[in-house]
């Protein structure tokens, strides 16, 4: 049986109306922002399932934009996040769609154009009680819950990468809570997700980036 805290029962403090359609949506937006590495230039947001049907009544659209702006789940500015987006020049568009079978009913896909004209796709779902999972980044299937500090690498799929990355973390006494590798094809590009117990400072991220097979590293703050 699960061990509950009193604050699982009373709490969290949040902006309503729904933990899955509002609070979860804010967290998805925040995680997307973190993966992008800041505010995007432009974003197309595809809504699937229940998100597509009831997003307006739950403020899911305002919540997703609020998250992209970096707001927390208890930030009352979420209600007005569209005007905040306008004031910082974020262009966005919502499209109700059907992503197909096999997607959780509360799923969103971000198609992002970054300030450096990079195109990025991020898919995630709100799976209940404000919990979320990112399931895809740029065509790579992954699983990222975003409740711990997370490092995502893109690297050449060659032997030894995992131990070299974990070696760097061990040197700085950063404990790995969870680690998983995803790849589309053998010996091409792969992605690794490393969830850690501690925050990972920028210099460590840069050290990992210097490792030869590593193409790209992102650090995701817990949302």
């Amino acid at each position: 049986m699960r061990e509950y805290s009193c604050f699982d029962i009373l709490g969290p403090i949040m902006v309503g109306p729904s933990s899955s359609h509002t609070a979860g949506a804010v967290r998805l937006g925040r995680l997307a922002r973190s993966i992008i590495g800041g505010l995007p230039e432009e974003v197309e947001i595809l809504l699937h399932g229940s998100f597509a049907q009831t997003y307006r009544g739950h403020g899911t659209d305002l919540a997703l934009i609020g998250g992209l702006l970096g707001f927390n789940t208890n930030d009352v500015r979420i209600r007005d996040s569209f005007s905040f987006a306008q004031s910082v020049g974020l262009k966005f568009r919502f499209i109700s769609t059907d992503l197909g079978d096999g997607f959780h009913p509360n799923t969103v896909k971000f198609i992002v154009f970054t300030k450096n004209q990079e195109k990025l796709t991020i898919t995630g779902s709100s799976i209940g009680g404000g919990n979320v999972v990112i399931t895809e980044i740029n065509g790579y299937e992954i699983k990222l819950k975003g409740d711990l500090p997370t490092i995502i690498t893109t690297h050449q799929d060659v032997p030894g990468v995992i131990s070299r990355v974990s070696g760097v973390l061990a040197n700085y006494k950063i404990n790995i809570a969870f680690m998983r590798v995803f790849r589309k094809e053998k010996r091409k590009l792969a992605q690794m997700i490393v969830e850690t117990d501690e925050q990972v400072p920028q210099e460590i991220i840069e050290e990992i980036l210097k490792l030869e097979p590593i193409v790209n590293v992102r650090f995701i703050e817990p949302a």
Binding site: I9, I13, V76, R79
Partner: peptide, 18 residues
């Protein structure tokens, strides 16, 4: 009503029953 209009509430135990 505050919950349904995107105001700040404490889930107790859920947002619907806050």
């Amino acid at each position: 009503e505050v919950n349904a209009s995107m105001g700040k509430i404490v889930a107790a135990p859920t947002a619907g029953s806050c």
